[in-house]
């Protein structure tokens, strides 16, 4: 009995310690005025994390918008309400699908790569060498990646929504023959910029923070062996997906559930 309680206590302490370590890590690396060199580093990471993720995010957005329109049309036509298609596609994309799916794709495409890259730097003792020559690896390696993640995921989410709404337009209007005017006007009548677009962006900012934080911290904190790197990469994807889906429920309840 007693050994079990001790084991539980050890787990609790480990968990709290990891939380504290990761919080300190986030504060130390994300805060602070960037140097000119830091801006260049950030730009490079923006290219890797943002621009190169654009293709997968936009293609997924297009297909999700098309599927939403197709499914929505077949259901709405039973009620004679196919005019509400634009409203349905736009609201489900802006409020839920774009922030969540873009964050999940981002965790798989960019988050895992960040973990593996930083992990390999740690395993080959590049981070230690940097400290030896007086360069702070938190500012040189971690901070540009964190900031690139914070900035690019909201941008990717915007792209996802725009392409998804266009995909819904392609299927609903061009293919299924819905009247073009009712697609856009019902959308405009029901979408509110602050309540829908703004809250979706807020969600996306929170997800960006959480996903990049998890990815970078897992890379920095792993056991520097090849097995450790593979485990940390898996953990990044699993933890960030779970955190995104869980946080999404909480944020939705607060933003749209009338719980305020």
């Amino acid at each position: 009995m007693i050994p079990r309680v001790i084991a539980l206590g050890r787990h609790g302490c480990d968990l709290l310690e990891a939380l504290g370590r990761s919080g300190l890590f986030l504060a130390q690396s994300a805060l602070g005025w960037p140097s000119r060199e830091g801006l260049y580093l950030w730009l490079r990471q923006m290219h890797f994390v943002g621009v190169l993720s654009l293709a997968i995010v936009l293609v997924s957005g297009l297909f999700i918008g098309m599927v939403l329109a197709l499914q929505g049309y077949t259901i709405l036509i039973d009620f004679g309400a196919e005019q509400a298609l634009g409203q349905m596609v736009a609201l489900s994309l802006l409020r839920e699908l774009a922030p969540v799916v873009a964050a999940l794709l981002f965790a798989g495409r960019a988050g895992s790569a960040l973990t593996a890259e930083i992990g390999l730097m740690k395993a080959t003792e590049q981070l230690t060498s940097m400290e030896m020559i007086g360069v702070d690896p938190l500012r040189r390696v971690v901070a540009p990646r964190l900031w690139a993640g914070f900035v690019s995921l909201p941008l990717l989410t915007v792209g996802f929504s725009v392409v998804g709404i266009y995909g819904g337009f392609l299927v609903g209007v061009e293919w299924l023959g819905l009247f073009e005017g009712s697609y856009w006007s019902n959308m405009q009548a029901s979408v509110d910029f602050i309540a829908d677009v703004g809250n979706g962006m807020l969600k996306s900012l929170v997800f960006a923070l959480v996903v990049t934080w998890i990815a970078v911290f897992q890379g920095y904190d792993l056991i520097p062996t090849s097995e450790g790197i593979s485990r940390a990469t898996t953990r990044t994807v699993v933890y960030s997906s779970l955190a995104v889906l869980g946080l999404d429920f909480v944020l939705t309840a607060v933003m749209f559930g009338g719980l305020s």
């Binding site: 730009l43 621009v51 802006l94 941008l155 792209g159 709404i165 509110d192 677009v197």
Partner: peptide, 30 residues
């Protein structure tokens, strides 16, 4: 730093901002 990379990042950010404008004007009818 290659010029194409800078151009890519610039276009990416510009596209994001334009997308937000599209969401504002066309989708929410501001």
């Amino acid at each position: 730093r290659s010029k194409t990379m800078e151009l890519g990042v610039g276009l990416f950010m510009l596209a994001g901002i334009l997308g937000l404008v599209f969401l504002g004007l066309r989708v929410s009818g501001l």
